[in-house]
Each structure stands twice: as structure tokens, then as C-alpha cells.
Amino acid sequence: MRKLRQDAIRQFGTFGILLILGTVGFWVICMILLPQLIMIDYSFRPFLPLREIGGPEDNYTLKNYMVLFTNEFHRIIFIKTIWASVIVTVTALFVCYPISFYLAKVAKGARFSLILVGLIIPYWINELLRIFAWQLILSDAGVLNQFLLTINIIADPINFRAGNGAVIMGMVYAYILFMVFPLYNAMESLDRNQIDAAHDLGASWPRIHWHIVIPHAKPGIAVGCIMTFMLAAGSIAAPQLLGSPSSFWFTQIIYTNFETANWNQGAAYSMVLAGLCLIFIFSMMKIFKVNLRAIAK
């Protein structure tokens, strides 16, 4: 400990290290830890009228969490959110894998820059507007229905937005790049010679990918899946814009809690969502055998 202090002072000076510790300390304590703790505190307190807060009724309780089990609607939505997010993640992985590989190991020169720019442009356009674009396509009078009507495949417009399909479509589109870039980063460091060597030894393309590319890209796959799942499960814009009353999302329940000033319930559900993401992160780290340092790159 003494050595650490000396080392810190030697490198940054007393004032410097205090400044660094103060800055980082403010971030960790006032922006990361305390807000989480206060949210946890809220989540274990009952929702009471203002004058009863701090009164005899204001005791710690599991009530807010229990609602998830007692309220059937909430429970169904929660489970739906999980599997729909998994679908978004898996779909994104399949759509993005080839383009990431192409970008990392095949494309060169001008074509490479063109693809990169092509990927980045949609990424810079607001998430809400990207989702809105799908509203134009999937609505009753949208491009897709108009198209199908014109070529006489259907007689009446289909209500694409009735189920969860539209929300899932919109999310895959909106979060696709959070899958591409981690995959690309991981594949980029793969030695092209390994692929050539395997090819030379007679391995087929599926085998090369299964035995060489995928094992190498594991950290990237893990990161891409974590980011996409987290964004999907935590998305509020996509269900708000593309959903219908029948395709409610868990985040929308949280939002409603806050609209009705039931912060305690909202905090408890936020904790549930955070817990869900944590479990997903840990299972990804286990499945792909990667550590946190590889993830946060």
C-alpha cells in the first residue's frame, strides 16, 4: 500500500493523483454506485402516498418484486421480452457474420473503405429515425403492403404490426452494427494464413469457419451478442414506435410505472432487467470462455 502511494505520487505528484482520484471517485461513487444503491433502496420500499414516506409503513419489502409473479400480464411480457431479445440477437448474429468476415478477411482497398463507410452511415443516424423507417415500410399503408397489393399477392393490407414481428425486425435493423463491429474486430486479428493452410489441407468452407474462424472470433461473438441482447431487452424506442398494444415490451411497463409515479415498482423492475442482463453477460462469458477484459474492448 505504501509502495502504491509512493508510486502514484512519484508519477503524478500529490496534486495530480488527488485530482485523478477525485475525478474517478466522483464517477464511481456519484454516477455509478450511489445511483444504483438508491435504486435498490427504492425497489425494496413500498409505494406509498407522499405523506406516509418515512412513516411506520415505510419498511423494506419484497412486494415490488413479487408483482412479477402475481401479475400474469407482467410475467408474460417479461418472458416474451427475453425470448424476443434472444431472437433479435441470434438473427443479428446470422445476418452479420458473413459481412463481418468479408470485411475482415476478404475485402481490400477501395471496396473495404466503401463497405466500412456504408456500414457507418446508418449507424450515425438516430436510432429513433432508423426505427421510424420501418414504420413506413410495415404500416397498413406502408411500402410493403402497397407493394404486395400492387402485385396482387394480397387483397387487403396485412397488419404487420399486430404481433412482435415488426418490433423484432426493427430491432435487428437498428442494432445490427453493434454486432458487426465486435465480430469484425475479433476476426480481423485472425491470421489469413491459417485459413489458407486449412483450405490447402482440403477443409471445406463450413469446416474452416467452424474449426478456425469461429473459435478465433469467440470474444467478438460474445461481445456482439451481449451488446445486441442488452440493447434489445433495454430498448424502449422500438416497441414505442413499432409495437401495438399486443406487443408490449418490459421496458414499457417500467416506463408506465414512472408515468404513474410508482418509482418503487419501476425501480424493482429496473433491477430485474439489470439482473437479466447480468445473467446473460455471465452466461455468454461462460459459453464462450472469455473474460471481462476481452469483452470491454
Partner: peptide, 15 residues
């Protein structure tokens, strides 16, 4: 970075 944005928004607001 690994938490949904709404959780950060909510906890900051509450804090």
C-alpha cells in the same frame, strides 16, 4: 456500458 440505458437513466434520476 453493459447495462441498458434506461437503467442508467432511472438510477441517475432517482439519485
Amino acid at each position: 456500458l453493459l447495462m441498458p440505458g434506461i437503467i442508467i437513466g432511472i438510477s441517475t434520476f432517482l439519485f
